[in-house]
């Protein structure tokens, strides 16, 4: 302890993060960043309905500010790492806290979503890696992948049914993850009130559903020919 005692800020952060409550705050805070990104990303993606030019211009616009782009990417990377590391540490705590499991155990109040965060999370993480390789770097993209041709890349990618299906499944899981995560963020940060908590819970559910619907609409539009029919 003495080595960190010299620096009270380090010491304070150490003690904070040492507790599971501190880890959860880290998880909540990084969750806020990631959620913010998802909102921006969804709004960006919705431009697919405005046509190829708009979409490609948007991509070019983002790439015209490399400092900002890489700054955001760095922040996202840090948040993802923080989110994942804290969740792994908490999960290890969980298995240590109940080494002998029940012969019979019923869940009577918790939602399916809340109990499956440790499944939905890793699947989403795996999806994100694939998603970047598919549409950002093109390493796992469609044969026609071209750098910065966002609209075409997207359409060609989603015409591959397995890719579209994986995307849709991932977005359903994301919806569940957000459904519990959004409300849980408030609870972890200590925001709770008998009057507002039910409202927050309901709002979290709607936001999660709307976001999933927004994202899922894209591959469906591609597959049904609503988007990219001219390609």
């Amino acid at each position: 302890m003495s080595s960190v005692a010299a620096d009270s800020h380090v010491h304070r952060a150490f003690h904070f993060y040492q507790e599971s409550l501190g880890k959860k705050v880290v998880m909540a805070a990084t969750g806020v960043v990631l959620f913010g990104y998802l909102v921006a990303h969804l709004l960006g993606n919705m431009q697919v309905y405005l046509g190829a030019e708009q979409m490609d211009n948007y991509a070019a616009f983002l790439h015209s500010m490399p400092a900002l782009l890489w700054g955001v990417r760095a922040l996202l990377l840090i948040s993802i790492v923080g989110h994942i590391v804290s969740s792994i540490q908490l999960a290890r705590l969980k298995s240590a806290a109940r080494p002998v499991s029940y012969v019979k155990k019923e869940a009577i109040a918790s939602s399916y979503a809340s109990r499956t965060m440790m499944w939905s999370g890793p699947i989403i993480a795996f999806f994100v890696i694939f998603h970047i390789l598919d549409l950002t770097t093109g390493a796992a993209g469609a044969a026609q992948f071209q750098d910065l041709r966002a609209y075409e890349n997207l359409v060609y990618s989603f015409r591959r049914v397995p890719v579209a299906a994986f995307y849709i499944v991932a977005m359903v899981l994301l919806c569940m993850h957000l459904y519990h995560g959004l409300w849980s963020m408030f609870q972890s940060m200590g925001v709770s009130h008998p009057r507002y908590t039910p409202i927050i819970k309901r709002a979290a559910a709607w936001v999660a559903i709307l976001m999933a619907v927004g994202f899922i609409s894209i591959p469906i539009s591609v597959l049904t020919g609503l988007v990219g029919a001219n390609l």
């Binding site: 599971s20 409550l21 880890k23 959860k24 908490l90 705590l93 969980k94 240590a96 806290a97 109940r98 869940a107 009577i108 109040a109 918790s110 939602s111 809340s114 109990r115 965060m117 519990h180 409300w183 849980s184 609870q187 972890s188």
Partner: peptide, 15 residues
């Protein structure tokens, strides 16, 4: 004392 961490799921409140 090796208690686990809360995941805000509400099983405790219910029982």
């Amino acid at each position: 004392d090796l208690f686990g961490s809360c995941t805000n799921i509400g099983e405790c409140e219910a029982v």
